[in-house]
Design a binder for these strands. Structure first.
Lengths: 302, 302
DNA sequence: AGGCTCCACAAGTTTTTCTTGGGCAATCCT
DNA sequence: AGGATTGCCCAAGAAAAACTTGTGGAGCCT
């Protein structure tokens, strides 16, 4: 671990920033205001940056101070929670599910609806976050992950090996389609590209789809519309922004409802399946097992 | 904030637990092993729990020690990262828009559709990420941010001061409503709570809404359904998982389409408005200005 | 058994944290 | 404008926390 700043000074900073006053901070900390002032100066010296602007008898946070405050508060809050936990020692039975951002709305939410049908009073906590996470540290009962490699040692269940296919809004196609479902003539700017980011380097691109069709077109992402979330690609297509290579699991409901049309039956498989991971000690809990069962059923939702 | 355990002792614990040896920890910390030993005993005394089992000249973590180690490492890692960040300190014509995850699908995508109606061949890059970001380093032309304080010095335009109101699916209401739009009898487990996180401490809760109604109910989040993304709360409500305090800008389309119903006209304003931020040098670009114009128009989309 | 390693303890030393009293600047009130 | 109040700053000293040193005890290896 890298060298830590002086922790006592960090504590003083958090309270002073929250209170907007060294005197109030001193009161909360049970010390004198001069002690708080000294700690802040100590920390500013350590960072080599001003954290507060002093105006006569008032302080205001600098940009730098403002920038680090939320994380500081969070980290110290976490430590306080650790202390609290050690003094109490409780246990809960809430189901904590963690899912990539892109899957949260279009894919997981409908499956949760089915789960809560079966367990109407189940307490549930859904977190949207990207891989990798720490299931133990974050007390997560079940993590849905793209790929099967992030969490060795945990119980794994393969859920679905999704694929992508070109989708767009019916009205968009009516206006821009020109009877060309092979997309050879579509303007470059009308392709919606999903920027998967470094965690998803194996995700298919438009060039992959054209290759799968036996074509050679390779739409240039710098001339198209780019989004940083695969569910946003679906939403954009639905709104007529262009043609997206949409993931089937996310597009399914829209396809069935006619909000989106698939332009081709040719699809490209994703590089990896989606898998569910569980700490072994939790995998046989009734709620966890029930959710896994529903996730494994790859049947389309309504 | 609750009382913090002795922070220097927390630091010693983290290193000792990682190293599995007070002597190695001492070496890393640059102190004597007896100093580490004392800090650990200090912390054990504070917690009233053993953190290490001492076996002759060896130490092993207790269950309690094991349970708190991951979070401790994370919190201290976060603080170290803050320090790192403070010690550190980078042309195109593509429009790069950065937006909080929660706004991406339900709010921004429809507005982008309108923008691309006016600028059919505009190259656009939409990134979903949470505050704070570095507009300069990430080359972002326009950042939509919750609140008006993250980016002082940048050009700011206030977009919308959203509010939240109770929404749910019509069918859900038919089944669970019992003619009680004031929600005084709704089962605690049927409330959908949004966990805003520390950056959004000013966001309204169910208790705030009941207070605004002149009631005193305060649904306990630990007994309800929790989601970590406000758009996921809307999606969950739409799917009949419960009643959510949904943000009007996100729920609007669903409300108009009848997929959601508002249970009350009482709403609670968010603590802050959504604002658009631009580097001053880019604020007058035609594409940026056009998008801002559309964002300012708070008219509901289709 | 003897040697090595490493944690524990107690007493003393060093460093950090805090207090106190006075100074300075901004704000408020008359 | 002048005075009172409030709150941050500074310097010196006091108190508390953190650390060192030397010795004892226990486990492991040869």
């Amino acid at each position: 671990m890298e060298k830590l700043p002086p922790l006592n000074a960090i504590k003083a900073f958090e309270v002073a920033a929250r209170a907007g006053s060294f005197t109030l901070a001193a009161s909360e900390l049970g010390v004198s205001s001069a002690a708080v002032s000294q700690q802040i100066r100590n920390l500013e010296s350590w960072f080599g940056k001003q954290l507060f602007v002093r105006t006569g008898n008032r302080i205001t946070l600098t940009d730098a101070g403002h920038a680090i405050y939320p994380q500081t508060a969070r980290a110290l809050g976490d430590i306080a929670a650790i202390g609290q936990r050690m003094l109490e020692g409780g246990l809960r039975t809430r189901l904590v599910v963690s899912v990539p951002f892109s899957l949260a709305e279009l894919w997981l939410a409908p499956r949760l609806a089915a789960l809560l049908e079966a367990f109407p009073h189940m307490a549930i906590d859904v977190r949207a976050e990207d891989d990798p996470i720490d299931l133990m540290r974050q007390n997560v009962d079940l993590r849905i992950s793209y790929g099967d490699y992030h969490y060795p040692g945990l119980r794994m269940v393969r859920l679905v090996h999704d694929d992508v296919l070109p989708v767009c809004a019916p009205e968009f196609w009516h206006r821009h389609g020109n009877g060309d479902p092979e997309l050879t003539e579509l303007h470059e700017s009308l392709f919606i590209h999903t920027n998967w980011g470094p965690n998803y380097a194996s995700h298919p691109t438009w060039a992959d789809w054209f290759a799968a069709c036996g074509g050679s077109r390779s739409p240039d992402p710098s001339h198209g519309r780019r989004v940083g979330l695969s569910s946003l690609a679906i939403a954009s297509a639905r709104l007529g922004l262009g043609v997206a290579l949409g993931q089937r699991v996310m597009a399914q409901a829209d396809l069935e409802a006619g909000r989106l049309i698939a332009l081709s039956s040719v699809s490209v498989r994703l590089g990896h399946p989606y898998c569910a991971f569980m700490p072994p000690a939790k995998a046989d809990r009734a709620d966890v097992a029930a959710l896994v069962g529903l996730l494994v059923k790859a049947a389309p939702t309504t």
